[in-house]
Design a protein around this nucleic acid. Sequence first.
DNA 1: CGATAATCGAGACGGTACGTCGAGTCTTTAG
DNA 2: CTAAAGACTCGACGTACCGTCTCGATTATCG
Lengths: 197, 197, 197, 197
Amino acid sequence: MDPNRPGRGRPRDASRDAALRQAAMEVLAEVGYRALTMDAVAAQARAGKATIYRRWDSKLDLVIDTCTQLVQRNIPEPDSGSVEHDLREFLSAFASFLTGPVGKAAQALVGELPHEPELAAAFRTSFLLPQRDVVRRLIDRGLRRGEIGPEAPVDTIVELTGAALLYRLMLTDEPLDAEFVERLLTQALLPLLHRGT
Amino acid sequence: MDPNRPGRGRPRDASRDAALRQAAMEVLAEVGYRALTMDAVAAQARAGKATIYRRWDSKLDLVIDTCTQLVQRNIPEPDSGSVEHDLREFLSAFASFLTGPVGKAAQALVGELPHEPELAAAFRTSFLLPQRDVVRRLIDRGLRRGEIGPEAPVDTIVELTGAALLYRLMLTDEPLDAEFVERLLTQALLPLLHRGT
Amino acid sequence: MDPNRPGRGRPRDASRDAALRQAAMEVLAEVGYRALTMDAVAAQARAGKATIYRRWDSKLDLVIDTCTQLVQRNIPEPDSGSVEHDLREFLSAFASFLTGPVGKAAQALVGELPHEPELAAAFRTSFLLPQRDVVRRLIDRGLRRGEIGPEAPVDTIVELTGAALLYRLMLTDEPLDAEFVERLLTQALLPLLHRGT
Amino acid sequence: MDPNRPGRGRPRDASRDAALRQAAMEVLAEVGYRALTMDAVAAQARAGKATIYRRWDSKLDLVIDTCTQLVQRNIPEPDSGSVEHDLREFLSAFASFLTGPVGKAAQALVGELPHEPELAAAFRTSFLLPQRDVVRRLIDRGLRRGEIGPEAPVDTIVELTGAALLYRLMLTDEPLDAEFVERLLTQALLPLLHRGT
DNA sequence: CGATAATCGAGACGGTACGTCGAGTCTTTAG
DNA sequence: CTAAAGACTCGACGTACCGTCTCGATTATCG
């Protein structure tokens, strides 16, 4: 059952996993999801197609795995003792990470979500939820410290934070830069957090 | 130069345009963007593929045009004399419109935006801008009526409105329903509009 | 350089060659050259079109190869010790072979000869020359045996033999039967061979 | 019923027939039957396709008509009082006519004969029969003059004459020149005609 | 050690959709 | 009603990609 048991034949070369994910990411960032071909990924990694299909069931599988792998290593979680500082830190760091190839890769998947339930689940669990959870924890710590009143609409603020980031990333052509983060923070998130205080 | 000049040969049959767009929308809603084939659209409309390619350069072109055509006819613009009422009206109506096939179609295009500049331009001009403009005009009327203080961060509010709608539509699997609209309105948009008043 | 070298990837499946040639011959005999489609050949052989195009450059190429392959295995060369007997034998056997699908296939190619130099070369080398050579060798043996006088116009007789066969086969609707062979032999070929003896 | 009646509308422009046949012949001679497209013929004649289809039912129809029209005007029938002289004259003249575009056009049709009964009938009636009839009449005159013995195998000689011409024209790449005509005449036709005299 | 078995790169395989092009028909404006 | 122009449906073209399979060669474990 376990493909990683010592088994008889030649063992899988674990270094191919990384090479293939790397190749997939490169091709994805260069040409987008639709124009990504398995042949191109195989060629980029100097691998055979069978080597890919031995590890992933399909193009979609490969791309999902490649993205989530990367995302999960790159969500910052600052904890400085100040909600404002933590939020600013998180937004800046994550925004600049999203600006790179992973953001484009994630965007490439959006169109497939409605027709690929497994992809949708993976996308949400590995990409959306972690960011929300970080923001939520960050605000919760503020609540516990009394920085924020208990009546702040946390759920809505958390959702808006993600929405604002991804809207810029994927839909408009406006930059995800420091000025944007600052404006979002001072004109929307902080006022909502401190409403009534 | 003008392809619609009275010209010599047989003129384009305008009814084919509509039939093809209709067929494209049906196929799109049924199987999604990736699985949409030109053959399927042609068959659905009882047209030859050449007839499609005479009007649109590619599958993408066809889908863009089909969507924007529909969107532009369906953006509500309430004007009741109350910002709150207008916003609620707009959000409800547009959210329920986006829940239909056009929303899915728009989503299907997102992944192509970074690699198709023309598509990106069309998407923004025909899909994003109109919604933003409606919201902006609606708030501007409130400003002129004195309902809203002049220091309200209109740009940010407008952006967040679109972001919140499309985030739910395309990325999460949470519903774009009345409850969501109400929460967005009372917990975020209205407080931001009335901040400091 | 050599496509049959042991090489790296999966080798060409030689049995597909035969299956495709078989399918091509069947389709050709059934519907003729013009109506022969690559899709039909592929379907008949349960092959993908790419598998055909990997082996032959075009429909023409496939048909040429299919025909010459068959012709070269089916040119009889009798050697009984009598020119008359050998000629009768050859004409009967080859005429009845030409009456089958190969004859129709060869005919199908005639119209393309002036515009396809490679086809013309293949047609002549694989189809015309072998018949002429057989007849010539057959007559040469008669010359060496002294059955025929050395002044017989061999070139002309050889040419007329081929001409007579193919004229009936391809141009008139008269049968290539035993009576025709007998008439050609006794009224033309034998008198010319024995002229002056 | 009669399309040439004075009728109501604009009368058919008879000069278009000639222009279209001319165009068809040119295209045919240039690219062959298969590559001849109706659009090309129409363009060459600066005509609309409908104008072609108003006069001929199909591509085949057009080509048949174009060829037979030309052939029937160009079969020479010498009558000098000498079979040898007449045959030499006919063979020379007709061979040089066949060397032109009409020969190529006729060749283009050969591949279609087995699958197009109407074409086959037209081809034989308009192209093959007239040549045979000329040769037969020419020999008959010799018979009546006593130049030839009554036992000469006329049918066979007539058939061989056509076969020899068309074999060279369509199948081999050897020239249909004076030397060929002379050799055919002196080494085959005349000996057969005079056999036993 | 030799046999066995799963891996690797390479690329042929069946299949499906692509975007183009040709045949023959239809529909417009101009005469 | 005919002419030229050109849009129309239909279907084959030759190409590209998917996911599978098959080859020789390699690399491990097992007996």
